[in-house]
């Protein structure tokens, strides 16, 4: 049973310049009674979104539209500045560069255990999964090698294999599988299909139309932190492409 429900979710980043970061300036300014408020970027403005179990939702929109911030909020990594987030089910997210969450000095094997432990699994249960994860990732003997010797595609493969082996109810992917090769992508897609049959939720942010059409059944178009359109993948993509070819919302 997996659901995601966002109500009036607002996320703002403060653009902390060197002056704002500086404690001395803050103290001097507040003593003088003219504390300058830092520049604020509204990454998400009043987002209302309900995602039911079995949904495969694509997020589209230009760079800086708030797609990654929205994924981070669903993942519980960023608390919203205001509004409420309710997520039921186990959420796992493949976010932040290919190497995020991996220890570069440790072997792939050790990373399997460490990453699982960070996510709340026990070392024993992770050790029991190493062979399956190795098989699925297609890393073979390279699993013994330190991760710094992996290409970014191999690191993505390892992370995806670890995360999906933990049987999440909600899977969040930023830019799909990035630099993973075609053979792995095909296998990953099969695993995603299996995952979807058990009524999970997939949310995928991407600039690739083909990927979105292949993986998602519905889409949300984000622009400057707000939802512009929500509906079928084809419909939303049409509206999105139309907007910048005609210069509206561009």
């Amino acid at each position: 049973m997996a659901t995601i429900s966002l109500r009036k979710v607002h996320a703002e980043y403060q653009l902390l310049s060197v002056r704002d970061y500086n404690l001395k300036n803050r103290v001097v300014q507040s003593v003088r009674g003219r504390l300058k408020e830092p520049v604020v970027i509204d990454a998400l403005r009043s987002i209302d979104l309900d995602i039911r179990e079995g949904s495969r939702l694509g997020l589209v929109g230009p760079n800086g539209a708030g797609k990654s911030t929205l994924l981070s909020i669903m993942a519980g990594l960023l608390p919203p500045t205001s509004g409420s987030v309710r997520v039921e089910g186990r959420v796992l997210a493949l976010l932040g560069g290919s190497e995020a969450g991996l220890d570069q000095e440790a072997s792939g094997r050790d990373n399997v255990v460490s990453m699982g432990v960070q996510l709340g699994e026990s070392p024993t249960s992770m050790r029991a999964r190493i062979d399956d994860i190795t098989d699925f990732s297609g890393l073979g003997d390279r699993i013994q090698h330190p991760v710094y010797s992996y290409s970014s595609g191999m690191q993505t493969r390892l992370r995806f294999s670890i995360l999906t082996s933990l049987r999440p109810d909600v899977l969040l992917l930023d830019e799909g599988l990035g630099t993973a090769d075609a053979e792995f992508t095909a296998r990953a897609n099969r695993r995603l299909d299996e995952f979807m049959t058990s009524a999970g939720i997939l949310v995928l942010a991407s600039h690739g139309d083909a990927l979105l059409k292949e993986q998602c059944t519905e889409a949300v178009w984000l622009q400057s932190g707000a939802i512009v359109e929500q509906g079928s993948v084809d419909g939303v993509l049409r509206g999105y492409h139309h907007s910048y070819s005609t210069g509206i919302n561009g």
Binding site: A75, L77, G97, E99, A100, Q118, L119, G120
Partner: peptide, 9 residues
């Protein structure tokens, strides 16, 4: 920072 922003804990 990367751990904090990629792994919920």
């Amino acid at each position: 920072a990367t751990t904090l922003l990629s792994t919920r804990q």
